[in-house]
Computed example of a mutant assay.
Amino acid sequence: MIPYGRQDISAEDIDAVRDVLTSDWLTQGQAGPRFEQALATYCGSAHGIAVSNATAALHIACLALDLGPGDMLWTVPNTFVASANCALYCGASVDFVDIDPRTYNMSVAALAEKLAQAEAAGGLPKVVVPVHFAGQSCEMVEIRALADRYGFHIIEDASHAVGGDYRGRKVGDGALSDVTVFSFHPVKIITTGEGGMLMTNVPKLAERLSYLRSHGIIRPMQSPPTADERRSNEDRHGPWMYEQIELGLNYRMTDIQAALGSSQLNRLDAFVERRRELAARYDRLLSKLPVTCPWQHPDTNSAWHLYVIRLRRNELKRSRRQVFEALRAAGIGVNVHYIPVHTQPYYQRLGFKVGMFPEAESYYQDAITLPLFSKMTDAEQDTVVAALTNILA
Rank of each mutant, 00 (worst) to 15 (best):
Q7S: 14
Q7R: 14
Q7W: 08
D8A: 14
D15N: 07
T22R: 07
Q28H: 09
G29D: 01
G32M: 14
Y42E: 07
C43L: 11
S45D: 05
S45P: 00
S45K: 10
A46K: 15
H47T: 06
V51L: 09
V51P: 12
A57C: 12
A57M: 00
L63T: 03
D66H: 01
L67I: 08
V76Q: 09
P77W: 05
N85P: 10
Y89F: 12
C90G: 10
G91A: 02
F96N: 10
V97A: 05
D98S: 14
D98Y: 15
P101R: 13
N105R: 06
L111H: 04
L115N: 06
A120E: 08
A120G: 00
G122Y: 05
P125Y: 01
K126S: 05
V127A: 00
V128E: 00
E139D: 13
E142G: 01
D148Q: 03
G151D: 07
A161S: 13
G163Y: 04
G163C: 01
V171K: 13
V171R: 14
G172P: 06
T180C: 14
T180D: 02
F182P: 15
P186V: 10
G196W: 03
M197P: 09
T200I: 02
P203W: 08
P203C: 08
P203A: 15
L205G: 04
A206N: 02
E207I: 04
R208G: 04
H215C: 12
I217H: 07
I218C: 05
Q222P: 11
T226N: 10
T226Y: 07
H237N: 09
D255R: 10
L260A: 06
L260Q: 07
L265C: 08
N266T: 01
V272C: 08
E273C: 14
R275C: 05
R276C: 00
A279T: 07
R281T: 15
Y282W: 04
L285Q: 05
L285H: 02
P290Q: 05
Q296C: 10
P298F: 06
A303H: 07
W304I: 01
I309M: 00
L311C: 00
L311A: 01
R313T: 15
N314V: 06
N314H: 13
E315Q: 11
S319I: 00
V323L: 10
V323Y: 11
E325L: 09
L327F: 02
R328A: 09
R328G: 02
A330K: 06
Y338D: 12
P340W: 00
P340V: 09
H342E: 10
P345Q: 12
Y347C: 09
R349F: 14
R349V: 12
L350G: 08
F352E: 12
K353P: 00
K353I: 01
F357W: 11
E361P: 15
E361N: 13
Q365A: 12
D366N: 11
T369W: 01
T369S: 06
T377F: 02
T377R: 02
D382W: 03
A387L: 06
N390S: 15
